[in-house]
Design a protein around this nucleic acid. Structure first.
Lengths: 133, 133
DNA sequence: GTCGTTGCAAAGCCTTTGCAGGGAA
DNA sequence: TTCCCTGCAAAGGCTTTGCAACGAC
């Protein structure tokens, strides 16, 4: 990562604009809006480089597979809306570390994945007539 | 799944003997100890069938990928020991459901993955001389 | 002009599927 | 004997890699 390229700029710009964890498909589609020739292999290579550089971190989500998010946030977890399929970062952590595992287990890390309906989709479900009026 | 076969019996026996979540590699290796001809495709097909039947459930683990465990346990989570690489089921749930997500998010499911060192590996680390004496 | 990066295509994993032969009932 | 199930091999997704051409500096 010694030279600045329009491809990598586009990938980073996608993350800045979306401000949420993204999968390869999203990154590629939106990156191509900026650099039409953008190739899958280039995206994979740059994502890997940006993770190594510490600009992104990789998440292996149980439902969504591999997604990437910008680094720099505090410890947090993710909420997957299975209506719009977006992933949301939730600040804070409802996991009490001390009573988390039985005697003898040394807990070094934990990951919590929530899923359900996000506020936006929930509003649309409850009040669909608003959208249609 | 209308006929009983030695292959499927072997796969189920592996789960009974190990009594912990298992990945395809483990299932295949240990199943072959019972039925030498056991094929990967057969394992995949039977795992899928046993999941549909409700005898197994599938876990998409962030570090281990796809693993399977016997059904019938209460709500629980998993601990991954990154020394022996085994997955342990932990009873109970340290996630307080009410304060789990901000206003507006409807939480329907959650999954918690812990990782660290299991009691056995921890004992070996602390007292390695016992093993060697 | 260098040599880091890209695009393309091929190749690697893991998992699924098509098909003919084998075995349970 | 029937036809479900298995083994084998080929094919599907997702991701990585080899290589020649491009382009940042």
């Amino acid at each position: 990562m010694k030279r600045k390229t329009s491809q990598r700029e586009a990938i980073q710009e996608v993350f800045r604009q979306q401000n949420r964890p993204l999968g390869i498909e999203d990154i590629l589609a939106q990156g191509r809006a900026m650099v039409a020739s953008l190739n899958q292999a280039t995206v994979y290579r740059n994502l890997k480089a940006l993770v190594e550089k510490g600009w992104l971190s990789q998440i292996n989500h149980p439902s969504l597979g591999t997604v990437y998010e910008r680094t720099g946030m505090e410890h947090h977890h993710h909420f997957h809306c299975h209506s719009c399929n977006h992933l949301f970062c939730l600040s804070g952590c409802p996991v009490s570390a001390d009573r988390i595992a039985p005697e003898g287990f040394v807990v070094e890390e934990h990951e919590l994945f929530l899923s359900g309906i996000c506020p936006t989709c929930n509003a649309e479900q409850v009040l669909p007539e608003i959208k249609n009026s």
